[in-house]
């Protein structure tokens, strides 16, 4: 017999306990409300190291790696996917505000019904024959990326009973330095599931987790065509706590 799943009330209580003691701008790796993390987080402290050798240089990607059409997730499968067409755009910057130029950005997401094309996704929501939900692009000389897609739906998962992930797009980014590698998730403003979601709440600093929420941007919206969202990404390096400017 599988163990019965915990209730949302139990998970929410645990989330509230961690929230009393916020622990910095990155997610906690040991965050029990996300049950899959229990056996998969380091139990020994990480070792301080200075980046050396291959760690100082991110991989390089170029126009031979990525077709510009890969940035439009709505044209990949011979027809238009269902859902709310959106553009998500923004800049990839380093901690000093410099653009990360000509670098790879990869995205993947559920369809408008909250279903991934992945075989392990057994959520009984429809697949969309015109949507695979993955895309790539290279940032331009200003560090800018842009994707056209449809807004993903929220979806259920088995972390606990009646567990639902807020709608999100997975993002994978490279900086100029191997240690700036970042995989994260972009969320949509005002999602009612934020407070209930242990993955989002694993970032216990509220200001830090809000940095994963895109802004609706009417200047990006296009008449009669799509709605626009803007989201900038800052890559500072592995688990780095940014220093506050002291000369204010």
């Amino acid at each position: 017999m599988p163990t019965p799943l915990d209730s949302q009330a139990t998970i929410s209580e645990e989330i509230a306990t961690y929230a009393k003691d916020p622990s910095g701008p990155q997610p906690r790796l040991d965050y029990a409300p996300y049950r899959s993390s229990i056996l998969r987080h380091p139990t020994k402290a990480l070792k301080q190291a200075d980046p050396e050798g291959a760690e100082l240089l991110a991989p390089v990607f170029g126009p031979t790696d990525v077709d510009p059409l890969e940035a439009d997730l709505t044209i990949q499968d011979g027809g238009e996917p269902l859902g709310e067409r959106i553009r998500v755009q923004g800049r990839v910057l380093d901690g000093d505000g410099r653009p990360v130029r000509r670098q790879l950005v990869e995205v993947w997401q559920a369809n408008a019904s909250g279903r991934y094309i992945h075989q392990r996704d057994q959520h009984p929501a429809p697949l969309d024959p015109h949507f695979t939900g993955m895309g790539r692009c290279l940032t331009d000389d200003d560090g800018r990326y842009t994707f056209v897609t449809v807004k993903p739906g929220p979806y259920p998962w088995k972390n606990h009973q009646n567990a639902w992930r807020p709608a999100h797009i997975h993002f994978s980014m490279f900086g100029t330095d191997f240690t700036q590698r970042l995989v994260t998730q972009m969320y949509f403003p005002g999602d009612p599931l934020f407070a209930l979601d242990p993955i989002y709440q694993s970032i216990t600093d509220p200001q830090a987790r809000e940095r994963l929420v895109a802004s609706y941007d009417h200047d990006v919206s296009e008449p009669e065509f799509l709605l626009g969202y803007s989201w900038d990404i800052v890559l500072t390096g592995s688990r780095t706590t940014p220093m506050e400017a002291t000369d204010d």
């Binding site: 990155q26 998730q185 800052v234 500072t236």
Partner: peptide
């Protein structure tokens, strides 16, 4: 600029 936090790669990265 403060860093953008990471999040898990999740279970569904295999097709991407």
């Amino acid at each position: 600029l403060p860093a953008t936090p990471g999040q898990t790669v999740g279970p569904f990265f295999h097709y991407a």
